[in-house]
Structures are given as structure tokens and as C-alpha cells.
Design a protein around this nucleic acid. Structure first.
Lengths: 212, 212
DNA sequence: GGCCGGGGACGAACAGTGTTCGGCCGACGA
DNA sequence: TCGTCGGCCGAACACTGTTCGTCCCCGGCC
């Protein structure tokens, strides 16, 4: 029963999907494949290499629209949301996205697609190039953060984790001498349902790109 | 010879500064303190807890300006640059910034300072609250990425790592069928000295905040 | 057909990690 | 003076990524 790289990547993704990126280990993958850890190194040079393969596989699943100059904003927003949902479906995997080398073809395809949308939208070449970079970096960061928060919420029995109203109360009761703004704007600081914060930040960058 | 939390944090920061965040381990800190790893757990509940203490210590070193409505843009940019340089001085530590709980007083001080600058600049309360969040998230992401890249550059004997012109050549020689934009804009994609990419992204968000 | 080489599979081991247990010992309160 | 409590720490447990050496099977060559 030969092992292929695709099998390794597939079972790795299953493990991450079920138990998170922290639970992914060579032995875990090897066990799921009914073999020892050494067998994997014939198909994968490294754990880091496996991580890159995982990001590449995910990148290949993004569907890229044909650029439409009229509503390029919605198009780029949609691609960012796709990446976001894909990352969040494999909790913690976005941590591997920071280490990905631009040498990979699948991630290059994603970059090309986003670049195409921005350029067709009338964004300057330099702004488009750096804009794609900034957007992807932010998306990865947002997903990493929310993955960590979700993990903490579900495992810590809700101890040490507080709800929004409790959080508001704590912020509001900070010493007004040192924290006047934090205390008086506790509502805004804890506001936002779902991906409101994400939408805000992405829109911030997209609107900035418009005039360049 | 009693051990204090400050000592633990100090030696941890020294280790990170010299060898990077990946080299930081309980045993490493314990050895530097001439003791065993178990001794640390009397002062630090967790490795994760130590990470949070490190971020808190770094946050306390940021100098916050008195808000000046006239040039709030330069002020917020300067604070972001301070955080960036501080994170980069301890390579890889920004990875711990994603897991930091907002319950800490020192990080709350940083948030308060940035919030003060934005609010005095005339930014809407909601935009200011989410703006601080987005900026700090991006800064952490940027520092994590560049830390990883720098690490790769210095350890891999420059093999597997290519210069800018070689990178341009590779991008330009991608199949024009699938990668027309990437190939024709290889120059823009590889442009940027120092922290140009950072300045661009931060300015993008700040300019976006202006109109809200 | 017989032989040999090469490469995938894999058991075992190495060095390292975070964390816990149990005992030691000194200082501080009753 | 005695007791208890908490910092200290050696040893161990269950992991991690990775390598070495061996086994074995399958394909090509004489």
C-alpha cells in the first residue's frame, strides 16, 4: 500500500480540521496512515515543507473571478472572505501561511488572481502589488488570532474567558486617570459581531487603494 | 539566591534577542539561571503565560506621545514603527502577540495611547477602536513574517534563498498564459527597500481612518 | 532467467520540548 | 521551639521532529 504526497496532505488536513494545527504532528499523520513517522520523510522533506504543501493545497481551492472593472471592490472582498473562511476551517493553519515561500505555483495563482482584480480596478501597479501583500498578510493574521481565541473559548471551560458584557464592565472600571479613553469607549472597543472587525479592516485597505 | 519573575522575563528576552523566539524554552531559561526547569513554575504558570509576560514587558517600553490633533497621523505612525522595531529586535516574538489576552495592564496602556491619538485626530470612536486593533494586528503579522524571512536568509547559507533580481527573473518567466499580470509586473512585485511595504500598508489604513 | 541496484517502508533511537510529582530545606508565624 | 508553608529542584512522563540502518520488493540489465 504505497503512500503518496496527496495522501499525506489529505490526512494532515483532516487532522487539522478535527483537532487544530497544534495537534498536527508527523506521528499523528503516520498513525492515521498505519505506518511509522520515518515513512513520511520519503515524500516530504520537512514538517515545514508539509506546512507549505498544506497552504498550497488550500490556495488551490480558492475560486478566482474573471476581473470585472465595475465591481472590483466586491471581487477582492470576496476573495479575502474565501481565504478567511478556508483558513478558519482549519484552525491555526494560518500560522503556516507566514512562512510560505512565494516560489509555490498555487499560491502564485492566488496572488495573480488578486493582482488581476486590483489592476483591472484601476489601482496603480505598485499599489496593487503591495496591496495584495498587505491584504493577504492581514487575513492570515486575523485568522490566526481568531483561531487562538476560539480554541481558548472551547477548551478552558469558559473559565478565564469572559463574555462581552463582563469585558465592558472591566474596561469601564479601569482607573480613569490612566485609561480615560478606554474606560469611556468600552462599548466601541468590545463591539462587533462575527467578522465585523475583519470587514472593517479589509474595507479600510481597499478604500485606501482606490486613490492610488 | 531567589528567583523573581523579572529575572525570568529578562533572561528570556536575552535569549530571544540572541537566538530567536524558537530557541526560547523553559530549560534554556532555567539553565541560564543555573537551576532546573521545575523551579520556573513557581513564578510562571505556563510557557504561554511567560509569552504574555514578554509581550507585556515589551509593551511597557513603548513611549506614547501626548496626543496632538494637528499631526495625529505622524504620531500613530511613529507608535507603529516603535512596536515594529521592538518586535524585530526580538525575532519571532511577534508570534506570541497574537495570543495575548487584553486583560493585561501594559498592553492596555499601549491600546489606550493609540486610541487617544486617533480620537484626538477626529476619528470616529468605532473606527478608532477597530483601527487600533487592525493596526496592531498588521504590525504583529509584518514582524512575524520578516522575522521568519530573516531567519531563513541567515541560516540557510543563502541556498534556497534568492536575491531580488533572480526573483524578478523567475516571476517574469512564469507562463504568460496563466500569470500575465505577475509576469509583466515582476518589478513592482519585488520592489521596496527596508520597511517600504510596512509604511505603505500602515499609511493605507491611516488614510482610510481619516474619512470615518 | 538470473542477478543486482535502488528506493520506499519502517523500527528504533536521539535530542529536545512542556509539565508534574515528590521530597528537601529554610524561613516565618504561633 | 515547633510546625507549616512555599520556593527550590532532581527525576520522570509523554510528547515532538528527525536520522540511521535495515529490510524487502520491483524494475532494468546481462
Amino acid at each position: 500500500m504505497p503512500i503518496t504526497v496527496e495522501q499525506v496532505v489529505d490526512t494532515a488536513l483532516e487532522i487539522i480540521s478535527a483537532e487544530g494545527f497544534e495537534a498536527l504532528s508527523m506521528r499523528r499523520v503516520a498513525d492515521a496512515l498505519n505506518t511509522g513517522p520515518a515513512s513520511l520523510y520519503a515524500h516530504v522533506v520537512n514538517k515545514t515543507d508539509l506546512d507549505e504543501l498544506l497552504i498550497a493545497r488550500l490556495s488551490s481551492k480558492i475560486v478566482l473571478p474573471k476581473p470585472d472593472a465595475a465591481n472590483w471592490r466586491e471581487q477582492i472582498r470576496d476573495v479575502c472572505a474565501q481565504v478567511r473562511d478556508l483558513y478558519l476551517a482549519y484552525p491555526g493553519i494560518s500560522g503556516a501561511a507566514f512562512a510560505v515561500a512565494p516560489t509555490d505555483l498555487d499560491t502564485a495563482r492566488l496572488n495573480e488572481g488578486m493582482l488581476a482584480i486590483l489592476l483591472n480596478g484601476g489601482v496603480t501597479a505598485q499599489a496593487a502589488a503591495w496591496g495584495v501583500d498587505a491584504l493577504l498578510l492581514y487575513v492570515a493574521a486575523y485568522c490566526l488570532e481568531t483561531s487562538i481565541v476560539r480554541r481558548r473559548v472551547e477548551e478552558k471551560d469558559a473559565v478565564w474567558v469572559v463574555g462581552r458584557d463582563e469585558m465592558q464592565r472591566r474596561l469601564a472600571s479601569l482607573p480613569a486617570e490612566e485609561f480615560p479613553y478606554t474606560a469611556s469607549h468600552a462599548v466601541e472597543l468590545t463591539a462587533g459581531e462575527g467578522h465585523d472587525r475583519f470587514d472593517f479592516a479589509v474595507s479600510l485597505m481597499i478604500d485606501g487603494l482606490t486613490r492610488r
